[in-house]
Structures are given as structure tokens and as C-alpha cells.
């Protein structure tokens, strides 16, 4: 925690295949420390699979470095202990536990077994700070399962904060959120990126325009385009993909079928 300097993420030539189907086909990314990188692309482009590869959920070839640590080949919980945290497309908080308990568990992996044997007394400082940041201080004792949808996502992010993740990989964090909730989430991302590196998978173009610092577009398992929001939006290949025309040569453009 004293180590305030965030690290950058470096993904080089990562490939993931499922039974012969190549979902991620040589993706390389450089996300500098403190960036808010948006990862976009059509459904099935391989965005989630890239995050799965970084966090050790699927086997991948190539190289993924966070700071100077190689991540590929390590088990999930070890990668997490190196400061890499993620959320999932569906909420994965512990619904049967309170907000406080959820955060406390997230903080616990670096505490060691001795503290596990004891009860929690009061609210630990790091947990209190995270509650404040995610705006759930007043709901600390509420069962997580009873939170509103947006609050659940914030709780997920709060868990990454107490976990002391310095790289946050967020898979569609604002899906299903109202406008106000999206704004609040964007502000939250800006706060946490001050001393962390953030990668966000998102579909929502409006959200992207407002909060992305840089963008990578994935398509069919490859990087299609990369740059600032303006650069990416101006890229004709990106427009093509988002207008629904397949870019693969040889396939029939959808407009000519009828």
C-alpha cells in the first residue's frame, strides 16, 4: 500500500484457443501506469478472454507482464496477490454476506492466517476508506444480495480497492446501469485511476467518450485499432466493424445478401 507507484500492463502476442478455435489471436497491448484504457469490440471479439488470460483463468501463450512480473503460467490466486484485480460481466459479490463482510474478505488475502482465526472487530481503516469511496458507508451492514444493481458493481470495485489491486480489469461495469449510476461510476474510475491502472471492457459509446483516456478495439481476436477516442472513432476499419460489415475478405458483405 505504501508503494504508490502504479505499474503498467504489457500484453505481448497473447493467444488463446478453445479446442482448435482461436478466440484471441496474437493480441498485444501496452497500458501505461495510471491509464484508463477502454477495450471495445463487437460481441465475441475476445475482450473477456483477454482479461481471462491476464488473470490466469484460461491458458494462454505469449507474455503478460504487470510491472516486471510475468503473469502467464501462474495460478489465479497468485496473480491476484501481485496486485491484479478483476470483475466479471455478471455480479459475483457474496450475496449471503453483508457489504462489510464482502469488503473485509477482499482485504483478507494479504492479512495472513492469524487474523483469519479471529473475529472482525469494528471496521478496519482500509475497509472504511473503500466504503467511503464507493458511497456505501451507510449500507455497510446490509446484505450484499439486497443491494441495487449499481451498488453491487460499486461493491465489486470497492473489493478490488481493499484487495489493494493496482491493476483493475473491469468487465462491462456499467451494463444495466441508469444514467446517474453511470456518471457516478465514471467519477469513481477517475478517482481510483489516480494511483492505479484501469482497463475497462465496455460497449457503451457515450460512456467511453466521456471517461476513456485511451482505447483499444478488438475484432475477431485481434487488435483492430488503438489510440485516443478521437483517433479510434476516425478509423475507417472501426467504423466498418461497428456498422456491421464483416471485414474478413471473401465473406459476403451483409448488405448484398438480400
Amino acid at each position: 500500500m505504501n508503494d504508490d507507484r502504479p505499474d503498467g500492463l504489457s500484453v505481448r502476442d497473447v493467444r488463446v484457443s478453445f479446442d482448435g478455435f482461436t478466440a484471441v489471436d496474437g493480441v498485444s497491448l501496452e497500458v501505461p501506469a495510471g491509464d484508463i484504457r477502454f477495450l471495445i469490440g463487437p460481441n465475441g471479439a475476445g475482450k473477456t478472454t483477454v482479461v481471462d488470460a491476464i488473470t490466469g483463468l484460461v491458458r494462454a501463450t505469449g507474455s503478460v507482464c504487470f510491472g516486471d512480473q510475468e503473469l502467464l503460467g501462474r495460478p489465479v490466486h497468485r496473480i491476484s496477490r501481485l496486485g491484479v484485480g478483476r470483475t466479471f460481466q455478471t455480479s459475483t459479490i457474496f450475496e449471503e454476506l453483508s457489504v462489510l463482510q464482502n469488503l473485509d474478505i477482499a482485504a483478507g488475502a494479504r492479512r495472513g492466517w492469524a487474523s483469519l482465526a479471529r473475529r472482525r472487530r469494528g471496521i478496519p481503516d482500509d475497509v472504511a476508506a473503500a466504503l467511503e469511496t464507493i458511497g456505501l458507508t451507510g449500507r455497510a451492514d446490509q446484505l450484499a444480495g439486497t443491494l441495487a444493481h449499481g451498488q453491487k458493481q460499486w461493491l465489486e470495485i470497492g473489493m478490488l480497492l481493499v484487495q489493494d489491486a493496482r491493476l483493475l480489469l473491469l468487465d462491462e461495469p456499467v451494463a444495466g446501469m441508469s444514467h446517474e449510476e453511470r456518471d457516478a461510476t465514471g467519477a469513481l474510475l477517475e478517482t481510483v485511476s489516480r494511483d492505479r491502472t484501469v482497463v475497462v471492457i465496455e460497449h457503451d459509446m457515450d460512456f467511453l467518450r466521456r471517461f476513456a483516456r485511451s482505447v483499444t478495439v478488438l475484432h475477431a481476436g485481434r487488435v483492430l485499432s488503438e489510440g485516443t477516442v478521437a483517433q479510434v472513432q476516425a478509423d475507417p476499419r472501426v467504423q466498418e466493424v461497428y456498422l456491421g460489415h464483416p471485414v474478413e475478405t471473401g465473406s459476403v458483405p451483409s448488405g448484398l445478401e438480400a
Partner: peptide, 23 residues
């Protein structure tokens, strides 16, 4: 204890617990 809370968490969502850095 905290362990008891963790155990419930593992029961309900083992994968998530792994991503928090526990085995």
C-alpha cells in the same frame, strides 16, 4: 471468525474467492 465468513464465501462463489487472492 473471519475464516468462517471466508468459508461461506468459498461455498457460494469459489471462483470469486480465488480472484481475491485466496486459495
Amino acid at each position: 471468525s473471519r475464516y468462517g465468513e471466508l468459508l461461506v464465501a468459498v461455498r457460494d462463489s469459489e471462483e470469486r474467492v480465488r480472484f481475491l487472492g485466496y486459495d
